[in-house]
Structures are given as structure tokens and as C-alpha cells.
Simulated scan of single mutants.
Amino acid sequence: MTVEAPKSRYRQVADQLRQDITHGEYPPGSTLPSEAELADKMGVSRVTINRAVQILRAEGLVRVLRGRGTVVRSVPPISRHSNQRYARAIREERGARGAFDAEIRRLGLEPRSDIVQLEPVNPPEAVAKALGLGQRERVLIRKRHMYASDEPVLLATSYIPWALAERAGLTKVDTGPGGTYSRLAELGQGPVRFTEDVRARIPTDDEEAFFGLAENQQVFEIVHMSWTATDRLVEYRVDALPTFQWVLHFEWPAEAVESGSRP
């Protein structure tokens, strides 16, 4: 028989604080008492409180804001339904500007996308190879900081062949209802197939600063590619998402692959 050691005090404190947050004693957007106040209230040292709070930070329940202290996150985990989010009816739902806009509104939150880079550039080697571009061909880069009710939740960087982007009007900040894919569809270049490669990794310095991540938090990196009916790749996109903030949901039938079809 294996005898487990008693749970450490800081983990017990983390359990209690997590329960207090879940039950609404510290509601979303509220500030936790100071470490000194919590230590006095719970009868433990400030070191114990600090270690407990680090657990909650790693889980994404709280974040530390300069001038405010430790704040309970106001945005719940976001479910990303990769099999459904790019359907036109969803992307354009109630005038949504694309998949992200629609899924955030469905949560009752306010989406916002800030364009931080929108210009023709020489593509990275992996992008040029995937898009089948020549040495001097350029792409439009659309780099966006994306928020749910003012909380940063997604960093998306899209690469689209420049000539196609110009024709589709994707050089504008606002691409209109349905976003990029609706504008491509109007040219007969709408995607009908997508691939996504997902991995968890350590964030870059820029990602860590943008999301306000703790030292031991990671991000999902999703390399998303969009293909037309003629197997033309029209978008190569890299999404970075905090792992604690997103639930990646996938769904498919058991007999998804038919004889002679693409796997």
C-alpha cells in the first residue's frame, strides 16, 4: 500500500483560493487581498501565500497587474470548435467579422482585433515554400492583437499572396462581414479545406508581454492553412493562444476517410 504524504500547505491554500474564486467570493475582475492580508486571514506565511498564488497564475485563474495587484481573470476558457468555426453562416453571424468575432460574441463578450502590421513583405522561408511563391513574390502580412472584453486572448499572423490580397480588398483594416474568407469567396477563391498543426511551446518575449504570462505558462501555436477547391493555398496563418485560456475542440465521424479520398 502506498501512503501519500500530506498535501503541502501552499497547495492547500491554493485549493482554498481556487474554491473562493469559483464560488464568487472573489468575482471575475476583482482584486485579491494583499499577500499580507491573506497570510493573516489564513494563518500562514507570506511565502506560502506567494507560492499558492503562483499556482493560480499558472492555471490562468489570476494575473498580476501593475498598480492593481493580483486580479481574477474576467474571461472564461474559450472553446475553439475547429470543425465548425469557419463555416460561412458562423463567420457572418449577426454581422461578425470572422470566426473569432463570432465565437467571442457567443460567450457574451466583446471582441476586438487591433491590426499591428498590414503591409507587403517578403515571406519567411516556410511561408514562401508552402504558398509556392517565387523568390521575388511578396505577401500581405495581417498581424492582429485580439481581445475578449479588453483581455488579450489571441495573436494571429496571416500571410496571403499579395496580388490575391489586393484583388480581394484584404489590404483594408476592416475586411467586412465574414472577414478574409468571405472576401476570397467573392473572387471564387474561398477556402473549402483547412489544415491545422498544433503544438504547445514556450512563448516568445513579445507573446509573454502581450498576454501577461507568468514564467511557467505556455502557448498553443496553431499553423493554419486554407485551401481552395483547386488545392490552391490562399492563406498561411500562425496563431498563438495561451494554453490556459483556450479549449481546442475537434469532432469527426468514425468513418471519415472514404476510399480514394484525401486523408
Rank of each mutant, 00 (worst) to 15 (best):
T180Q: 03
F194K: 03
Y159L: 00
A214Q: 09
S226V: 08
L213Y: 09
E137R: 03
A163D: 14
T195S: 09
L154D: 06
Q135P: 11
T171G: 13
L131I: 13
A214H: 14
V173Y: 06
R138M: 09
L154Q: 04
F211M: 04
Y159P: 04
V219W: 01
S149M: 10
A130N: 07
L187H: 07
I222N: 06
D197I: 13
E207S: 08
I202E: 14
I202D: 11
A209H: 06
R183E: 03
G134I: 10
A214S: 15
L187Y: 06
G134A: 09
G134Y: 11
E208L: 09
D206W: 01
M146S: 13
A214Y: 10
S226H: 09
V139K: 02
D206P: 05
Q217A: 12
M146C: 13
A130T: 11
T195K: 00
E215P: 05
P124N: 12
G179I: 08
P177V: 09
L154I: 01
A156H: 03
T204I: 12
D205M: 05
L133D: 03
E151S: 15
E208T: 15
G169L: 10
Y147Q: 11
V153D: 01
A156E: 09
G212N: 05
L184M: 02
T157E: 15
G190F: 03
R167A: 15
F211V: 12
G134W: 05
E221I: 14
P203E: 08
L155H: 12
D206Y: 11
K172V: 06
P123Y: 00
G179F: 00
V153Y: 04
R193I: 00
V173L: 06
G212F: 08
V173S: 13
Q218M: 15
F211C: 05
F194A: 07
S149N: 13
R142A: 02
E125R: 14
L213A: 12
G190S: 05
D174T: 07
L187W: 08
E196D: 07
E208A: 15
T195L: 00
H224A: 14
L170S: 00
E208F: 02
G132V: 10
